[in-house]
Design a protein around this nucleic acid. Structure first.
Length: 262
DNA sequence: GTTGAGCTTT
């Protein structure tokens, strides 16, 4: 057929992305050529592992094209990525469900899940409510390969940077509040005023030109949130001491609710 | 209100 013309698709299909390449890196890389609407790194539905490719959706097809031409065959995270226009739209879970016959390498891994699914396929289909916050369920105990996806394999928005930023640390705030709920003496009036004053000094957001010129990115960083923490180099003994203290504190905090009575 | 299981190769 003669659709060799570039498809009017603003989504780019990035192939051969490293395992440790996260949507954040891609977004940053591609964002230089235009506003990125969304970055999506598909994971294996069952194994929850990166499948080696990603999708970057631009706002304008022109930007997508530009990025394609500029970033194609670029080395990111130690791998040469290949970019091309996305061919189809993202498949809905329903579509994929029907596509069960995709016999990838070995289905031995899926055997477990298959059995489970077969056992309670009806139930699974029924309780597919996506609004449930399975975060709690997932946090309880999540073993990527050992444990099969309990109905909902944490289909959270964690893959999408866009959504992730929307409600990023909501639970964090709550946790914090909970932690320091022992002392309830904090004049909120002043705090409020302060906060407002602070908020007034909103600088322009387009000024992120610190490490912009750098061409290499940290792919090894696990989580951006963690990366945000800056740990100044301190003495060994001090570090050890603190480490121990922290460990202790954490340990106590964790085991406290369980074995508090007895 | 809009999807998140998108064309991959181990």
């Amino acid at each position: 057929m003669s659709w060799y013309l570039r498809p009017p698709n603003t989504s780019l299909f990035v192939r051969n992305v490293a395992d440790n390449t996260r949507s954040g890196d891609l977004r940053r890389e591609f964002g230089r050529y235009g506003p990125v609407v969304d970055v999506y790194v598909p994971l294996d539905f069952y194994t929850r592992r990166p499948r080696g490719f990603a999708y970057v959706q631009f706002e304008d097809v022109r930007d997508a094209e530009d990025a394609l031409h500029n970033l194609d065959r670029k080395w990111i995270c130690g791998r040469q990525i290949e970019i091309q226009f996305a061919q189809g739209d993202r498949k809905t879970p329903n579509q994929m469900k029907g596509k069960e016959g995709r016999n990838v390498y070995s289905s031995s891994r899926y055997d477990d899940y298959d059995r489970y699914r077969r056992s309670r396929s009806r139930s699974y289909d029924r309780r597919r409510s996506r609004s449930r916050s399975f975060d709690y369920n997932y946090r309880r105990s999540y073993s990527p390969r050992n444990s099969r996806p309990t109905g909902r394999p944490r289909r959270s928005r964690s893959h999408s940077d866009n959504d992730r930023f929307k409600h990023r640390n909501r639970s964090f705030s709550r946790s914090k509040s909970n932690s320091r709920s022992r002392s309830k003496s904090q004049p909120k009036k002043e705090m409020k005023a302060k906060s407002r004053s602070r908020s007034a000094s909103h600088t322009k957001t387009r000024g992120t030109s610190k490490t912009d010129s750098k061409t290499h990115y940290k792919c090894g960083s696990r989580y951006e949130k963690e990366s945000r923490k800056k740990e100044p180099p301190r003495s060994k003994s001090q570090s050890r001491s603190q480490s121990r203290s922290r460990s202790k504190s954490r340990s106590r905090s964790w085991t406290s609710p369980k074995s508090s009575g007895h």
